[in-house]
Computed example of a mutant assay.
Amino acid sequence: MTQDLAPGQLLARGVCRHLLQHGFVGIEEVVPAPGLRVDVMALGPKGEIWIVECKSSRDDYVSDRKWQNYLEWADRFFWAVGPDFPTDLLPPDTGLIIADGYGAEILRMGPESKLAGARRKVITQKFARHAALRLRAFRDPGVTASGICP
């Protein structure tokens, strides 16, 4: 199954595995707002929201023009990259995770920027709905994010 995953998806899997050790549950490919899709969104034991963007190469990072729009949807923001990634490219005021398909390590904690209560409620509900639809799709392959396929 590993060979079916793209490099960024492998990083996301390792990140999600690692975040479980910190009490966070992660889901992949969440849309916090129209036009945005984060690689990993994680919900912590106290309701914290972390966003992790997975970059598999220098070109993948350089072509990302939306990451700053993700900051307003999380309490903390991180980059997740492989061990050979040139980390000096990444902004020093963001979190840093080194990952592979099996695990990860947080090298630098992203600065905390607490979400406003109303924003937290919206994003937590989106997280819950996304997770529920993903689980439902495992049981019923006819279910998609927008409902039931015709």
Results as ranks from 00 to 15, higher is better:
L20K: 10
V25S: 14
Y70M: 11
G14T: 01
A131R: 14
F78R: 00
A99L: 04
A137R: 15
G142W: 14
G26T: 08
T124I: 02
T124S: 13
D88T: 06
T144I: 03
Y102H: 13
Y70N: 07
T144Q: 08
A137T: 08
L89I: 01
G44H: 03
M109K: 07
P32L: 04
F24N: 02
N69V: 00
P83D: 06
L5V: 04
T124K: 04
M1T: 07
R119P: 10
Y61E: 00
Q125M: 06
C16V: 08
G103N: 12
A128V: 08
T2Y: 10
D39E: 09
P111F: 13
D88A: 12
A118V: 11
T87C: 13
P141G: 05
G142V: 00
V38M: 14
G95M: 03
G101R: 03
A128Q: 11
K66V: 07
Y102W: 09
D75I: 03
L43S: 10
C54M: 04
V52P: 05
I27C: 07
K114Q: 14
Y61H: 10
V40Y: 03
A42D: 06
I106H: 09
D4Y: 13
I98F: 06
A118F: 10
P34T: 05
V143W: 03
Q68T: 14
P45M: 02
G26P: 11
R17S: 06
K114H: 13
S146M: 06
R108H: 05
P86G: 04
E105D: 13
V40Q: 05
G82P: 15
P34A: 14
D64S: 10
R17M: 09
E112Q: 15
A132R: 14
P7Q: 12
G47I: 01
G142K: 10
I106T: 15
G47D: 03
G103H: 08
T124Y: 00
L43Y: 15
L115E: 12
R58D: 06
L71G: 02
D84C: 01
R134F: 08
I27S: 10
L107C: 12
E48P: 07
L133W: 08
Y102S: 11
Y61M: 05
D84E: 15
R108A: 11
V52D: 11
L11S: 08
E29L: 01
L36D: 07
R37S: 06
Q125Y: 05
P7G: 12
G82D: 15
L5W: 04
P91W: 05
L5Q: 13
A6D: 14
Q3Y: 11
A12G: 09
R65P: 00
E112S: 15
G101F: 04
D64M: 09
E28D: 04
Q68F: 01
H18P: 03
D100Y: 12
W79M: 10
D4P: 02
L36N: 03
V62G: 02
E72A: 15
V40L: 01
V143Q: 08
Q21D: 13
